[in-house]
Computed example of a mutant assay.
Amino acid sequence: MSKQEQEFHEPAGDWHPSGPKSSGIWDQMLAQDPGSGDATLLQRYQAGAATAPETITHEYWEEVMILTGELTDLGLGQTFTAGMYACRPPGMKHGPYRSEPGCSMLVVIRYPHDAAS
């Protein structure tokens, strides 16, 4: 299976809470492959929103582009701004995060696939 073909359009999907431990952080799915879990989404932090205080790791590749606002990595003590990009392999530690002014990001998730598939 793969992501559904889509021509340019205004995203119309609902915004959903990003996770139970992340109040004020919202996701809007743009495209998803239900078989693999690969996905492209918009993520929005409301002003002052923060992730849970733990360092984040996951089992997928994650690419993130900050579109507006800024995001602070509390673990690194660094603030990243619109136009900045991250590419994280599975297992890479990052965060926790907080956004004082709020921000929006484009997020691409890709699970490792067996070369034989």
Rank of each mutant, 00 (worst) to 15 (best):
S104P: 00
P112W: 12
C87R: 13
R110P: 03
I66V: 15
D14R: 13
D73N: 12
G95W: 07
H9T: 07
P96C: 05
S36R: 07
E10R: 10
M92K: 12
M1H: 11
C87F: 13
K93S: 14
E63C: 03
Y45E: 06
E54F: 10
L41C: 13
G77M: 05
K3G: 14
H94Y: 11
E62R: 04
P112D: 13
L76T: 00
Q28E: 11
T57D: 05
Y45M: 09
Y45I: 07
T79S: 14
H94Q: 09
W26R: 06
M1Y: 04
E62N: 02
G102R: 02
L74N: 00
E100I: 11
G37L: 08
P112A: 14
E54W: 12
R110V: 13
A86K: 05
M29L: 14
P53A: 04
T79Q: 09
M105F: 00
T72D: 01
L106Y: 08
V64P: 00
P96G: 03
F8T: 08
W61T: 03
M105I: 00
T72Q: 06
K3S: 06
V108F: 09
M1E: 12
T57F: 06
P96V: 05
F80P: 02
A116M: 08
L42I: 14
W61E: 13
M92Y: 07
W26P: 02
L42Q: 10
V108E: 03
S18A: 15
V107T: 05
S36Y: 05
A116S: 15
H58N: 14
S2V: 07
E5R: 11
D73A: 02
A115N: 08
A116K: 12
E100L: 12
V108N: 12
G95P: 10
P96R: 01
D33Y: 01
P90A: 02
M65P: 00
Q4T: 15
E59A: 15
S117D: 15
M1N: 09
M84K: 10
D27A: 03
G35C: 05
R88S: 07
S99C: 03
S117R: 14
Q43N: 15
G83Y: 12
G75H: 02
E7T: 11
I25P: 04
Y97T: 04
A52R: 00
H94D: 07
G24I: 05
A49S: 10
P11V: 03
H113S: 15
T51L: 01
M92D: 09
W15D: 10
E5D: 10
S2K: 10
M105R: 01
M105P: 00
Y111G: 02
G69N: 10
I66N: 06
P53G: 06
P101G: 09
A39G: 07
G13C: 08
S104G: 01
T68H: 15
Y60H: 13
Q43G: 12
M84Q: 15
I109E: 09
E54L: 05
A82K: 07
A47Y: 08
Q28V: 03
L41Y: 14
I109A: 05
A39R: 11
S104I: 02
T55Q: 10
D33W: 05
S36P: 04
L106W: 02
G19H: 09
D27R: 11
Q4W: 02
T51D: 02
P11T: 01
P96W: 01
G91C: 10
P20V: 08
Y97S: 02
G102N: 01
Y85R: 11
T79K: 10
L30C: 01
M105Y: 00
L30S: 04
C87Y: 12
P53T: 04
P17L: 09
K93Q: 15
L74K: 05
